[in-house]
Amino acid sequence: MKDCPEQNLTENIRRRFDRFINVVELAGLILIGLATAYAMAIEAWRVLMAGQVSLTDLLLMFLYLEVLAMDARYLRLGQMPVRFPLYIAMASLARDLILRAGDTADQHVLLTTLGIAVLAISVYILRYGQHRYPARDDDGREELRRPEPANK
């Protein structure tokens, strides 16, 4: 049975749009990676010029490394575990806690610490769930990357 011309046109438009979205996604990921590397280099330069390293400097560089790792993983595999942003959030909250040490109320310290604990528990639950109930790749990427069938 032959496909109708409208269906071929629709499929052609979908494939072209998907390729366009993939190019935009790739460009965005490259831009994020370059911007993160640049920000990390500026922070490293600032630390070198100051001649001393603080814990907040190290946490900021750790945040940059996590963003780079997340970006690289997404570029390589086309997927990103949810736990990566959770790691970034935990490091960010820890950095905020250290930066504001002594300047904030006890309630802020307690809530920030509770936030870090909730995120850590979330990561543990996600890791357990991924190990116990592995998911199959069902996002449709392999279907989109399949070569087009030859016309008969």
Rank of each mutant, 00 (worst) to 15 (best):
E25A: 15
A117D: 01
P5Q: 06
R83W: 06
A50L: 03
P147I: 00
E25V: 15
L77N: 06
D106P: 13
A44V: 07
C4G: 02
R14Q: 13
F20V: 09
D137L: 02
P147T: 00
A135F: 06
I88C: 12
P5N: 01
P85H: 10
E43P: 04
Q107K: 13
I21R: 15
V118Q: 08
A117I: 12
A41K: 14
V118W: 08
R16W: 12
R19H: 15
R132I: 02
L58Y: 01
H108M: 06
I13S: 10
I121P: 04
L75R: 10
V123F: 03
M40H: 11
L75C: 09
P81D: 07
S92E: 05
T10H: 09
G51V: 03
R146S: 00
P5Y: 06
G78F: 11
L29K: 12
A41C: 12
H108T: 05
R136S: 01
E25L: 15
A89R: 07
L63V: 06
R14I: 10
A101L: 07
R14E: 05
Y87L: 07
K152N: 09
G33K: 13
R73A: 06
L29R: 15
A35R: 15
G115D: 02
S92N: 12
V24T: 14
H108F: 11
R100N: 03
Q107M: 12
T113R: 15
K2C: 04
R127I: 02
D139M: 04
A150Q: 03
P81F: 13
L29I: 08
I13N: 07
P149H: 01
R16C: 11
Y128A: 05
R127W: 04
M49E: 12
I13K: 14
Y128M: 08
A27F: 15
L75P: 08
R14D: 05
A72L: 10
Y38H: 13
R73Q: 09
G78S: 10
A117T: 07
